[in-house]
């Protein structure tokens, strides 16, 4: 598999656009689906649902804690609420409501957050969630999903609606390359090996999957064969696939638009250190807050690029044959 993608002409769609459309589709199929927002429905795209199903859309105003509390109560009474706002406010402002009113009683609430990561851009660090996966991953009963493109977002939203229990879904603001077509099948708890190579495995999610695929193409031109794993299901994590690609390659790079503490990189490191330790390097935000700027510039400045993955992959491959001396 030495797939080459036409990156210049690839179609780009924002995950949140796919989210809004999928909600409308699901709303028609399941009358129990209700959607709640906290005064950001035009940005999160829940406004699409509100337009078609106004009787099942509830604006909670700028009150994220109450957004989660109402959602918990609706779920306890048999509804399937999708609660949306920006990732910072969903997971940070309302963390303890999610913990005690949703995760602890395992209520059927879907927390669908948009504007995650530094690619929020100009609004700056206050609005750029870099710790949301860590927060949600640490909660028992919580399923954590971070899709890579519009098609995977559609499938993630459908899978979340079909699953009974709390789910956190992480989406970005930007239009991102469409990597999957309808033949792709997302499953909670399953990673997807998108490209296979023997030298290094790159495990990524969110908008870093596209960068990982670009990196694999660059590495290929240097004679290095990379496996690329799209790991939208951060929790439950597909441990079997992660261990298998590590066995096949002996070196792992993780790539995510999230703090290197607590997100996908940490999750993969936890699994491998206990099961199959191999050299591993994490590409991500290096425990720092973001800043204002154009998204593309910020992604470069914070090392969230194919070039950075290539550099880190070369480094981790060199570590493969180094014996650690005591």
């Amino acid at each position: 598999m030495t797939e080459r993608i036409d990156w210049e002409n690839i179609k780009k769609i924002a995950m949140r656009d796919a989210y809004g459309q999928t909600l409308v589709q699901l709303g028609g199929q399941n009358k129990d689906i209700v959607v709640l927002d906290a005064d950001l429905s035009k940005s999160t795209k829940t406004a699409d649902f509100a337009k078609v199903f106004p009787e099942r859309f509830f604006n909670m105003g700028i009150a994220e804690q109450n957004l989660m509390g109402f959602s918990a109560g609706l779920a306890a009474a048999g509804k399937v609420p999708f609660a949306s706002t920006f990732a910072v406010f969903a997971t940070g402002r309302a963390f303890e409501q999610i913990r005690n009113s949703i995760a602890y009683p395992k209520l059927n609430v879907k927390i669908a957050a948009t504007h995650a990561g530094i690619s929020v851009g100009e609004d700056g660090a206050s609005h750029q969630a870099i710790e949301d996966l860590a927060l949600m991953r640490a909660l028992p009963n919580m399923t954590v999903l971070a899709p890579a493109d519009a098609e995977e977002t559609r499938q993630v939203i459908k899978a979340a609606a079909a699953y009974k229990g709390p789910v956190y879904i992480r989406m970005g603001r930007l239009a991102v390359p469409v990597l999957f077509d309808q033949s792709y099948k997302f499953e909670i708890g399953k990673a997807n090996v998108r490209r296979e190579g023997k030298d290094v495995a790159i495990i990524a999610n969110g908008l870093m999957v596209a960068e990982a695929l670009k990196a694999a193409e660059i590495l290929n031109s240097q004679g290095i064969e990379a496996t690329v794993v799209n790991c939208a299901s951060v929790k439950p994590l597909d441990e079997n696939t992660i261990i298998a690609v590590s066995q096949q390659t002996g070196a792992v790079v993780t790539a995510e638009e999230h703090n290197i503490i607590g997100g996908l990189g940490s999750a993969v490191a936890e699994v491998l250190s206990e099961n199959y330790p191999v050299p591993l390097c994490r590409v991500g935000i290096k425990d720092t807050f973001g800043e204002s700027g154009r998204p593309e510039e910020l992604l470069v400045k914070y090392g969230l690029t194919a070039a950075e993955i290539v550099k880190v992959a070369q480094k981790v491959i060199k570590k493969k044959n180094c014996k650690i001396s005591a």
Partner: peptide
Amino acid sequence: VDMSTGSLGQGISAAAGMALAGKID
């Protein structure tokens, strides 16, 4: 027990959500 509670302030929010579900249905 209709709702898990203990962290103050959260029960009334969930109760209101349940009441809203009753209205919807």
